[in-house]
Design a protein around this nucleic acid. Structure first.
Lengths: 347, 347
DNA sequence: CCGGCGGGCTATAACGTTCTATATTGCCGC
DNA sequence: GCGGCAATATAGAACGTTATAGCCCGCCGG
């Protein structure tokens, strides 16, 4: 019975500029001036209005604000919730955008929410430009989108004249990986291909180019695998019995490399004494101490910074020169690579 | 020289209702009626307006629309880009929200973007309710937030009367894990604690309760570890030499369990013949074929569905009964658990 | 004493949409 | 022929904010 019943939290309509103005005894535009920190109000009123606004718990309505202004200063970003790497990119995008005075609207792609819907969302929200992380849409539909607003694609090369791209150059990455192995004395190298995964074709081509540069074209063995741990493990398992002389493996990506490592461990082949392994991506898994995978890392910070700046440049009508911007990857040398075992140096 | 120069893509101001109305020769409100699919327009005009809108590439301005309406029907969601599980939850939230006619505003928490900023963002965007995934803010500040709008927290228990919680019950999960092991014949079980990780205390308490239920209170050994692969590997390594008789390990989470598996593999202890291992979370890593980890899985679909419905119920003034909703986890039996080796049955 | 100037403040309109109220039909029954 | 009704269309105001222009007042030089 009536003892200390909690009052229900009465949530009234959120306060507006008019409420603050009335409470402070000034006009609405003056409050607006104070909230925006622009000149035109006396220090006295400025202080008073600030106080009243804080007391009322006033928050400016972002939507009304954007509606009135000519520009929204909004960047729409689509990303895939399943890709850990996209998380790193999102982080970088927030940073660069806020530094440039732009705001970010996120729109996720999930198994149940196709990319088209994610894109429609950022269109509805009046974003001035779109930054798409690893989009799967056709070149054609991306070009259509680019007719409506500036589009910057990260981590995919889209051959449409109106679409900007920012991506890592696999040729540089593979060059680093092969160069590192050659320097240590390896000659016979196996490459586990991504087999149909996005970007696999480019990466294979890059590997072949790197092999040619280092004069190892006929020493490189390409094995079909895939993008997952399972693919790496299966391919390595099947292939273990068939090779001899190969002293190093480059995997399509880190997950694939992880499967390779597991198979080698179970087969009693020690890494890096008997076999060197190089991954690709520098995903979080590569950094675990007991994995400690040598890998080619993309630079999410640079990728996102370039993408944001490129989008803003388009908005401010300074297209800039290269439509397709390349970020150099870096080789992160950990403990899965080392010199080949002495008895196997046959070249 | 002048051959086939591409015309620069002229991006004009985006079309508005007024533009469509003028082009179709009808009034603005009529176009609005058509675009919203509400009664009040003739089939003839409906068709015409649709056609014209499509031709102009008209997209309704979500911000203006929400400004005019009394309600925004917007749910603000904060999530952590580093937590893969949050991705699964986001997916479910989109699904449930769209089914209920609500829209979702995402706001990410990253290493460089603190939770407070993410929350301010959804406040500025006029969301009607907030759904926070594993928030790290203090109970106090969450309560303050709840005074402004309904707040539903997923995956954390917040003891504030105005904050709803939806979470998995660790007691059920641990009960399943211990029960499964006991059923197979295990008696002496080690638990690798999360040591300071969010939720570790509750999970440890739940384990102890489960042990008590199964009459194994004095057979369970608690070992400090941590939430990462590395923690699991280190703890297992250090601890391997000190135990005897223990036939099963329950890890704080899957990542920790992965470290355990790796250490066991390197030590030549086979799983599950010599030792059973149970994880917690059913993260993607647990499903890899060569890992194939028996684990306690949270149900992201149910969690997100309940959270969305709870938020909407609050908005529509039907608070409903339990402020703290529990979703039952499920045991996913894979191949890292089996009967204990015969010689070790001592109880 | 007057015209001009500038700081501080406010009235008003506008952003793109939707709500409310009101007109304009055509059609029916009496 | 006329009131009533439903269906369709439009005029006008409103949402919360900001841009523009103008008002008021005290001050200065002439």
């Amino acid at each position: 019975m009536g003892m200390g019943r909690k009052e229900p939290p009465v949530r009234k309509r959120r306060p507006t500029l008019a409420d603050v103005a009335a409470a402070a005894g000034v006009s609405v535009p003056l409050v607006s001036i104070v909230m925006r920190n622009v000149p035109g109000a006396s220090p006295l009123n400025r202080e008073r209005v600030r106080q009243v606004a804080a007391d009322l718990g006033y928050h400016p309505d972002q939507r009304a604000r954007l509606l009135r202004q000519q520009r929204s200063r909004l960047l729409g970003v689509t990303f895939d919730v399943e890709q850990a790497f996209h998380g790193d990119l999102v982080e970088g995008i927030y940073l660069s955008a806020e530094a440039a005075g732009y705001d970010v609207v996120l729109s996720a792609v999930t198994p149940g929410r196709p990319e088209t819907r994610a894109i429609d969302n950022i269109l509805d929200d009046r974003c001035e430009a779109a930054i798409l992380l690893g989009p799967r849409s056709s070149t054609r539909s991306l070009a259509t989108l680019a007719a409506k607003l500036p589009v910057v694609v990260i981590a995919r090369n889209v051959k449409a004249s109106a679409v900007d791209c920012v991506r890592t150059d696999d040729r540089i990455g593979m060059n680093l990986a092969v160069g590192h192995l050659k320097e240590m004395g390896h000659r016979d190298i196996a490459y586990l291909d991504g087999r149909g995964a996005p970007g696999a074709v480019e990466r294979l081509r890059a590997l072949k180019a790197a092999a040619a540069v280092h004069g190892l074209s006929d020493r490189v063995l390409v094995v079909p695998a895939g993008p997952s741990e399972e693919d790496g493990a299966t391919a390595m398992h099947r292939w273990l019995t068939q090779i001899a002389g190969v002293t190093a493996v480059i995997a399509f990506n880190d997950r694939c490399a992880l499967g390779v490592l597991d198979t080698l461990l179970r087969a009693g082949i020690s890494v890096p004494q008997d076999m060197s392994v190089v991954g690709y991506d520098d995903s979080r898994i590569a950094r675990i101490s007991y994995v400690n995978l040598t890998t080619v890392g993309q630079n999410p910070h640079d990728l996102s910074r370039l993408a944001v700046h490129r989008a803003i440049a388009r908005l401010e009508h300074q297209p800039g020169n290269p439509r397709d911007q390349i970020v150099g990857p870096q080789l992160i040398i950990r403990t899965t690579t080392g010199p080949p075992p002495p008895f196997s140096t046959k070249g």
